[in-house]
C-alpha cells in the first residue's frame, strides 16, 4: 500500500510525510510496547501505537520503521512531530482504534511483520 492509500483508508491526519505519499508499505505491526517492536524485524513497516511519547519515534528510528500511525485519535505533541520530521519518519493520526486500524490495513492486503496474513 502507498502511504497515500494508508492515509485514506485510516481517514488519518498526516503530520509528517507529505513528500513521501508514494512510499510503499507491505507489512505492519501494532503494539503499545516499544520492546515488542524492538525485538522484531520491523524495518520498513507501518508501526501502529497508542503511545505518543518521544520514545515512540526513537523506537521507530532505531528499528528502521517506515511510518508511525497513532491510533485512537490521539494528537502527538509538537516535540514528537518535530522529531519525526528530523528523523524523516512519516507520522499519522487516525481516529480509529488499534483493532479497527489493523483490520482496515489487513483488509487492503497488508501482512504482519513476519509476512503472515
Amino acid at each position: 500500500m502507498k502511504l497515500s492509500e494508508i492515509v485514506k483508508v485510516l481517514e488519518a491526519t498526516l503530520f509528517v510525510g507529505e513528500d513521501r505519499l508514494d512510499k510503499e508499505f507491505l507489512a505492519g505491526g501494532a503494539s503499545d510496547l516499544m520492546s515488542d517492536i524492538l525485538a522484531k524485524r520491523a524495518d520498513e513497516c507501518v508501526f501502529l501505537t497508542g503511545l505518543t511519547t518521544v520514545q515512540t519515534i526513537r523506537t521507530a528510528s532505531v528499528s528502521g520503521v517506515g511510518a508511525v500511525v497513532i491510533v485512537r485519535g490521539k494528537i502527538p505533541p509538537d516535540e514528537v512531530i518535530r522529531m519525526a520530521r528530523e528523523e524523516e519518519i512519516p507520522l499519522l493520526s487516525t481516529p480509529y482504534s488499534m483493532f479497527v486500524s489493523c483490520g482496515r490495513l489487513h483488509g487492503q492486503g497488508m501482512t504482519g511483520l513476519n509476512g503472515t496474513r
Binding site: L33, S35, D36, L38, A39, T53, T56
Partner: peptide, 15 residues
C-alpha cells in the same frame, strides 16, 4: 506505562 520494562531488553541485546 511508557512501553518499556517488559523484560525484553537484555535478551534482545544478546540476540
Amino acid at each position: 506505562q511508557m512501553g518499556f520494562g517488559a523484560g525484553m531488553g537484555l535478551p534482545n541485546m544478546k540476540e
